[in-house]
Amino acid sequence: MPVDFRNDPAVQLIIQTLEADRKVIAEAKRKSFFIMGGGAIVLIAGVSLGLSYFAAVPGAAIIIYGLVRYSKTTTAFSIYKDAFKKKVVGAALRDIDQSLIIEPLQGMTESEFDDTRLFSTSPDRYHSEDQVSGKADKTRFYFSEVHAEYKSESTDSKGRKTTTWHDIFKGIIFAADFNKNFHGVTIVRPKDIGSTIGSWFAKAVPGLFGGDSQVVELENIEFSKTFITNSTDQIEARYILTPAMMDKLCELNNRCSYTVSLSFIDSHLYIAFPLDENYFEPPLYKSLLDPSCLERDIYIIRFMYDIVKELDLNTRIWGKA
């Protein structure tokens, strides 16, 4: 039976130290909320009694005091969060494979996000963090949390402008060195009504949409029902998406709540996993000693690490070292 990394005395000591920090920060946050709440009551009471504006001063002062205290906890929380990711998540990563590391402030750059061509929209607001990288046997890989959004602006009848933000993608993008050499670009996206109509037109009227990408009709029925594939090279797309690879991708997709998107560019594979949750974040109002607090993080790390094995990326028999 594998030994849980949390039983390691060094890791236990780290968790206990962080647990003490967590309690202090949680208590300080609670107190600052309490102070701000009290200040709000004093402020409302002073204003509602109809006294002069000066009656609002004590309430406002208490709220400001609460905010100052709260801002101090923010710094402490950032230090605690960073330590949790580097030391606790880092230990969980090393437990799976010694080569795995986490860099909390690193992520996929916006230009790389655009280069993956996983999404047709370029983001107006972009954030990426918690990059985990390493090597699973012969295959180098990394994954990061990504949140990309675009904005739309509307003006009402009175000329007031409203900006609305929409998600392009929120989740994890996995990138790995692919085990075959290729030069073209192959994109696999979830099939929806828009893409189905688009592909019908692209097939019926070639060249209508410009570009050198074509729809690739693949034989795997389940794969073709789930995804729409475009490529700059029909043969290369089939060289990458072999019958076995399509089966494996369907299996991988079936284990996810939302349909994944994939791209194969410059001998690299990118997979976008849409997710609702934010991973690798430490608990604040829940004990770090609770064994369940790391469960979903460890699950997602293991899931990403196992992709290399599941997609057979370590089989290097096609002339790529």
Partner: peptide, 13 residues
């Protein structure tokens, strides 16, 4: 081996 897989892809195409 690489050429075998490429030929298989070309046949599927």
């Amino acid at each position: 081996t690489e050429s075998e897989e490429q030929i298989a892809a070309a046949r599927r195409n």
